[in-house]
Design a protein around this nucleic acid. Structure first.
Length: 262
DNA sequence: ACATTGACCTGAGAGC
DNA sequence: TGCTCTCAGGTCAATG
């Protein structure tokens, strides 16, 4: 699930539910999702404190505990957050970690495949630098840097868009959407785009990200004119009615319309 | 040095 | 029904 729009929705959800409540207990149900920190260390750092703000960069959500204490959440392919009242509801399936707030509510980190991780950080900027992440697509990214980034890439355009070191936030689903909106073939060489195409692509990225966030990143709420609702075997292009095609690019399945995307 | 592949982890759905 | 196989919205280390 979680690409930039999804994680942005997680951030909003996190901030709307989980700030300024004392964290009574941190329950680590599966230590495998912790990155560089033991359950004991995490508990020492988090228990009896509160979250006071959230921040997102690419596919990461940062939660501030005050001072130099942050948590960095990554969601892999199947992770999400869930806030609930413990008396009325159980934690979701595949919950790997739960923050139990003192008022009877809790925040669960659920992840079926455990491909995501929770890490501690002193500050988001240092973390972003250490992980080699590029600027966020909705934030630091400007057209000039985007153009230069693509020009220096020798991979397919789809791979370049998904390269978190170039710019952060786009994954498999939204790279397909962006390429469809800009009418560019996913296997186009990233370094060989003309100026006009780069501009169109950049604009599509912005539009698609904002649209998705606006619709809470729910696929079923995306416009019919988007590829997303038709992104499946046998799907039809919402523009020309032709059959949507699937190809493997760098190990990931890319869907596109061979007629509209050249 | 860079880009691509395989491994990591678990379950859902298709096909037999 | 039950088994096997493939695939899934991500990333990292190993490989070419």
């Amino acid at each position: 699930m979680p690409e930039l729009p999804d994680v942005e929705v997680f951030r909003q959800y996190f901030e709307a539910t989980s700030l300024r409540q004392t964290i009574g207990r941190v329950e680590v149900l599966d230590a495998a999702i912790l990155d560089g920190v033991s359950p004991q260390q995490l508990r020492e750092r988090v228990e009896d404190r509160r979250f006071d703000s959230g921040r997102r960069h690419g596919k990461y959500l940062f939660a501030h505990l005050g001072g130099d204490d942050w948590l960095a959440f990554h969601f892999g392919m199947t992770g999400y957050l869930r806030y609930f009242r413990e008396k009325e509801e159980a934690a979701p399936k595949y919950t790997r970690l739960t923050f139990h707030f003192s008022g009877g509510y809790a925040l669960a980190y659920s992840s079926l495949r455990k491909l995501g991780k929770i890490a501690v950080a002193e500050n988001p900027d240092g973390f972003i630098k250490d992980r080699g992440l590029g600027p966020d697509y909705l934030g630091g990214a400007d057209l000039k840097a985007f153009r230069e980034g693509l020009q220096n890439s020798r991979s397919s355009l789809k791979s370049a868009l998904m390269n978190q070191g170039l710019f952060a936030g786009i994954g498999n689903i939204y790279s397909d959407e962006v390429l469809f909106q800009a009418r560019v073939h996913p296997e186009t060489a990233a370094g060989r785009l003309d100026e006009e195409t780069v501009r169109r692509l950049f604009q599509s990225i912005n539009e698609v990200m904002r649209m998705a966030i606006d619709r809470d990143a729910e696929p079923e709420r995306m416009p019919e004119s988007y590829l997303l609702p038709h992104r499946q075997k046998g799907g039809r292009c919402p523009v020309c009615g032709g059959e949507v095609k699937a190809v493997k690019i760098s190990g990931r399945t890319a869907y596109y319309c061979p007629r509209c995307q050249r």
